[in-house]
Design a protein around this nucleic acid. Structure first.
Lengths: 226, 226
DNA sequence: AACGCGCCTTAAAAGAGCCCTAAGTGGCTT
DNA sequence: AAGCCACTTAGGGCTCTTTTAAGGCGCGTT
């Protein structure tokens, strides 16, 4: 059982989804517009969001990015079958699942269940702790060994993404895509400059890393256990 | 990067999948029959399984249940059937994702990535253990008898590929193609140099092998049981 | 409008580490 | 014994990464 938020403008589809999910024991809320949906997601902090892409007031992809900017909530996007590139793009920009419309109630329910099975075992806190670093995703405040440090937007987004993937080597390409939201031109040194500034604020250098470890030729890894 | 196992009987589709996944940096194994696939999944403990449903020797659903009986490995099912009920049934019986055939390389790659992201964020680790060697594919960290060793990119990729094929003799040609991502010019001695460096870091020599065994005229074999 | 400030990008240089080539040695096969 | 194959070491070129510096842009303030 979980709380699910449905954003879908078509009344009949919305009712189908709400009924199917409610029948299988979930707490369901629904809205019919992007802006109301965004507000609802913020207010009710659901465990899963079902997001229709064909909303009247805003592109579904934009809404997805707005949700991702404030939350790591798992998102299932509902889309038309013939749009393969769109699906790839959405999965890369933060969607966790997709269902193809028209979908059946049982299918949607199965997707929600499959997704929750993965997510339940993860600790869903709004504050990430990596070694001596505390990252509050909501207020965007960071402390290192208890002392507050001021990060600007890019620095915070870099740190937050690395922290969300603690221990994993994150390729520059992925890191750039996540923070800049645009394709990575391989020769772009900007990301290195920001990493350097971030390191300074975390109290380390590349030569004496405490958290951000360079894996030459592959990417960088945030690791608090060393 | 992860180790992926593909079970698909159609040669062309299999090659498409293998190439797409290898190009995006994964260690890939593939088989064309259900029984060989099951054996391969048992032997190589992959991080993700791509499972075709239209296998010649066994129903894909049955194979999925057999895999589920022995492992929690995430499974992506590939189905030509545009059959909604079939998909729901499979998701309920343990599949984690599905792709509809024919699928593109980028689409498959995106599904694998999305799945790995969920698995990783659930706190799972992807570790290969060969004798005293522990290989963490996510952080690219390696320990031998508990002691950390620092491998550079080529060394790590070589070791990871050999470990994913533990016990099998890997031809130089295949090893080179997997790590360098380009065709093997037969006279290339570079791979030998890197293998030598890797051996040194693992604490062995070719004359006194503990893990990497040379099979003269054929290739090399990683084996931790000796 | 003009100014100041912070933020981001571009540029450039230096350093470190990695990778390939080359060459010599040793062992196995024929 | 000769030839082939594999292993190792050494050296230099090159790529990748880091860091500093300078300039432009946006934005709020004066």
């Amino acid at each position: 059982m979980a709380s699910v938020f449905v954003v879908e403008d078509d009344h009949h589809i919305r009712e189908l989804a709400v009924r199917a999910l409610a029948d299988s024991g979930h707490v369901v809320r629904a809205e019919g517009t992007a802006m109301a949906g965004l507000q609802g997601v913020i207010d009710s902090s659901p465990d899963v969001v079902i997001l229709d892409l064909g909303l009247p007031d805003l592109d579904g992809g934009d809404l997805l990015r707005m949700i991702r900017a404030i939350s790591d909530v798992p998102v299932i996007v509902a889309t038309a079958r013939d749009d393969e590139n769109e699906i790839v793009r959405l999965l890369n920009s933060g969607a966790d699942e997709y269902v193809v419309k028209p979908y059946s109630g049982p299918e949607l329910e199965a997707r929600v269940r499959a997704l929750l099975r993965r997510v339940d075992s993860a600790g869903n806190t709004r504050v990430l702790t990596i070694g001596g670093i505390e990252i509050d995703l909501r207020s965007r405040q960071v402390t290192v060994d208890g002392a507050s440090v001021t990060l600007n937007r890019k620095e915070f987004d870099l740190l937050a993404y690395l922290a969300a993937h603690e221990g994993a080597v994150v390729p520059r390409e992925e890191l750039y895509a996540a923070v800049w939201r645009e394709p990575y031109g391989g020769a772009d040194k900007t990301i290195d400059v920001h990493l350097s500034w971030l390191r300074r604020k975390l109290g380390e250098t590349a030569a004496q890393p405490r958290y951000i470890h360079t894996v030459r030729g592959v990417g960088v890894r945030l690791d608090g256990s060393m």
